[in-house]
Computed example of a mutant assay.
Amino acid sequence: MKLTREFYARDTLQVARELLGKILVHKINGVKLSGKIVETEAYIGSIDKACHAYGGKHTPRVETLYGIPGIVYVYFIYGMYHCFNVITKEEGFPEGVLIRAIQPIDGLNEMANLRFNKEYNELTKAQIKNLTTGPSKLCIAMNINKENNEQDLCTSGLYIEESVDKEKIEIIEAKRIGINYAEEAAEFLWRFYIKDNIFVSVKERVLRYNKSEGK
């Protein structure tokens, strides 16, 4: 079952935690690509110098951040990679959650071809592990790009759904990745990931975690 708009229209940190264990799905060209979300990062424009819309910034690039909860914000980095975000809170408030890593489930051959131009059974162990272990890697494997910007997760073929797996998970809270420029915001423990999952992009040496029941 697709997550509803009410799920996204809540506190951004809560949404970032509760997205862990949910399933990201992209149905495209008759193929279903999917993976379990194992790592997220929260961004809150009003107080977060790492957010593209910090301080009320309005540019064509960031306008999607001000949209309704449940739409997609895709941005381009380093002139070659995409990052996939979910808009949260409420319209007019620039907040969202970056999906940093997923554990592949469906469409493995398609993902392998998109990432490495190989069939899944031709991948090395290292390539399998690195298939979706990062925000840009998962965008390539899931065929997500700028064309998906502003797409509605509640009504389109790109969406997030509940998992049928009700396993309990341990959630690690850590600093976000690659935002050393963000001054005090670089210290916020706004990155969340599933403890011991091999598809997490970066694991901390010093771990802080709490128990959370997967939903």
Results as ranks from 00 to 15, higher is better:
residue 56 G to D: 03
residue 95 E to Q: 11
residue 25 V to D: 02
residue 189 L to N: 06
residue 182 A to N: 05
residue 127 Q to W: 07
residue 4 T to F: 00
residue 160 I to P: 00
residue 120 Y to L: 00
residue 188 F to E: 04
residue 96 G to C: 05
residue 142 M to N: 08
residue 32 K to Y: 08
residue 16 A to L: 08
residue 26 H to C: 07
residue 30 G to I: 03
residue 68 I to G: 14
residue 166 K to I: 08
residue 17 R to H: 13
residue 164 V to R: 10
residue 60 P to T: 10
residue 17 R to W: 09
residue 75 Y to C: 03
residue 173 E to T: 14
residue 81 Y to H: 15
residue 187 E to I: 04
residue 213 E to T: 13
residue 208 R to L: 10
residue 53 A to S: 14
residue 202 V to Q: 05
residue 103 Q to H: 13
residue 34 S to P: 07
residue 23 I to V: 13
residue 15 V to G: 00
residue 214 G to F: 09
residue 194 I to H: 00
residue 110 E to T: 12
residue 154 C to F: 06
residue 33 L to S: 00
residue 43 Y to H: 02
residue 121 N to D: 14
residue 129 K to M: 13
residue 184 E to G: 08
residue 121 N to Y: 15
residue 63 E to D: 14
residue 41 E to W: 01
residue 115 R to F: 05
residue 152 D to S: 09
residue 141 A to E: 00
residue 184 E to V: 13
residue 108 L to K: 11
residue 1 M to Y: 12
residue 115 R to A: 02
residue 203 K to G: 01
residue 134 G to R: 02
residue 113 N to C: 14
residue 114 L to C: 11
residue 43 Y to N: 02
residue 208 R to T: 13
residue 30 G to P: 04
residue 147 E to T: 15
residue 19 L to K: 00
residue 85 N to P: 05
residue 60 P to D: 12
residue 215 K to G: 15
residue 176 R to C: 05
residue 83 C to P: 00
residue 30 G to H: 06
residue 164 V to M: 13
residue 107 G to R: 10
residue 43 Y to T: 03
residue 32 K to L: 15
residue 125 K to A: 15
residue 73 Y to R: 05
residue 33 L to P: 00
residue 55 G to D: 01
residue 36 K to M: 11
residue 79 G to T: 04
residue 72 V to P: 07
residue 112 A to G: 01
residue 88 T to E: 02
residue 104 P to V: 01
residue 4 T to L: 03
residue 16 A to F: 01
residue 73 Y to P: 05
residue 56 G to S: 01
residue 64 T to S: 14
residue 161 E to M: 09
residue 167 E to Q: 12
residue 35 G to T: 08
residue 90 E to H: 12
residue 41 E to H: 07
residue 207 L to T: 12
residue 136 S to T: 12
residue 78 Y to W: 03
residue 15 V to E: 03
residue 18 E to V: 04
residue 168 K to P: 12
residue 148 N to R: 08
residue 9 A to P: 05
residue 148 N to A: 08
residue 52 H to P: 03
residue 193 Y to F: 14
residue 74 V to A: 03
residue 183 E to C: 09
residue 136 S to K: 09
residue 105 I to P: 09
residue 170 E to H: 11
residue 31 V to L: 06
residue 134 G to M: 07
residue 14 Q to K: 14
residue 204 E to Q: 13
residue 146 K to T: 14
residue 50 A to Q: 07
residue 96 G to W: 04
residue 147 E to D: 15
residue 6 E to F: 10
residue 114 L to R: 15
residue 109 N to I: 08
residue 150 E to V: 10
residue 171 I to A: 02
residue 3 L to H: 07
residue 195 K to W: 06
residue 176 R to H: 00
residue 206 V to Y: 15
residue 65 L to K: 10
residue 163 S to W: 01
residue 163 S to T: 02
residue 208 R to I: 11
residue 131 L to R: 04
residue 109 N to V: 06
residue 73 Y to F: 10
residue 11 D to V: 05
residue 42 A to T: 05
residue 39 E to L: 07
residue 80 M to R: 06
residue 200 V to W: 04
